[in-house]
Design a protein around this nucleic acid. Sequence first.
DNA 1: CGTATCATGTAAGGGGTTACATGATTCT
DNA 2: AGAATCATGTAACCCCTTACATGATACG
Lengths: 203, 203
Amino acid sequence: MALEHAILVSLRERPAAGLDLARRFDRSIGFFWSATHQQIYRVLARMEADGWVSSVGVAQRGRPEKKVYDVTTAGRAELASWLARPMPPEKFRSELAVRLRGAAYGDRQAVLDTVREQLADHRTRLAHYEQLAARDFPDPAGLTGRELDVHLVLRGGIRLERFWVDWLTEYLQAHGAAPEPGHGTDHDTDPGPAAPDVEGPDR
Amino acid sequence: MALEHAILVSLRERPAAGLDLARRFDRSIGFFWSATHQQIYRVLARMEADGWVSSVGVAQRGRPEKKVYDVTTAGRAELASWLARPMPPEKFRSELAVRLRGAAYGDRQAVLDTVREQLADHRTRLAHYEQLAARDFPDPAGLTGRELDVHLVLRGGIRLERFWVDWLTEYLQAHGAAPEPGHGTDHDTDPGPAAPDVEGPDR
DNA sequence: CGTATCATGTAAGGGGTTACATGATTCT
DNA sequence: AGAATCATGTAACCCCTTACATGATACG
């Protein structure tokens, strides 16, 4: 139910085409929401049918034309109405937590390896987010309005990654395991998922 | 994909009928996974068809017979296999974060009210979880095996609630808003969602 | 005797993921 | 010429939520 509204927020920040939005959902907004381009196209079509957004074809040199969407008056009203609507408590789900709980019913070492992988991933993201915060918001004290909102959501991303790092570290310690993989376990150290970015151009 | 395995974990801890499982998913396991009874019944039927679980009807005095499920050998193998399978990084979603990001496009006071409500909810849960930890695990240092796993997942629940409390408190402060609702805003102070519990009987 | 609880389900619909399709342009 | 990227989409499938259905027993 919230993808439409996430798109409305993103389009109010700046009009965009479907793929632009998909890229944004791998960046700033992507801390707390994700969406693939297929899903975005479908929802965008429905939103246009409902009159929440309108599109114009924009020619590009050397690339196919793209349909740039913008929020209509009706779309703005819908967004404002949604923002004022009360919200039920959120349910969080974590497959990793289920694995931690059930580790005794399988190979515990394998579970510990998974934890180490996830921990490394969260550490990478935490470092990246903190770097972004230092770069884009060197002086957070004076922020207001939209900028303040963007910064505070980034703060949430940092806090969430810290939660993971702290918890998984505690888990490994309690089980007497090192946070780094032992000898010769040849993990391929890929750089992890595409580093999310805050703001900046769509491409 | 993980509900089946969450059920397997729960059934390995203790055999149970569909409704028993639904109650457990509002308690211990429910920190990081949730499921309604309708969903559980359907998945349970599929799992029995796949030979992962088997059921026996158990008569009860004064109540309808219930089908108690237990994990088969094939189910145990599947659970062990799943626990050893590598896991992609998890995606977290938060509708509240989208609202925070978009607050400038609606009534900011309404968004702040929503934040205060959610904050109160998370504070309640945090207090409850901490109470459970103190009651059920007064001396965590000596725990091992299954007990240790249960305690560590509870620790994760506590850490997650702390994340929310800290973040939302920071949000309100940055916007110069008090963490408690202002004068006369008559929120009905309901006790919040059914307090999750750790371990204990199914009913 | 009406209401609530226990217990098991069915049906409909929305949301999301994965795989595939298409046509054009730039890069090697 | 072949591969990669840009841009938009379709189709199938699975997961999940919400509402409804049924029959029995306990409670006031």
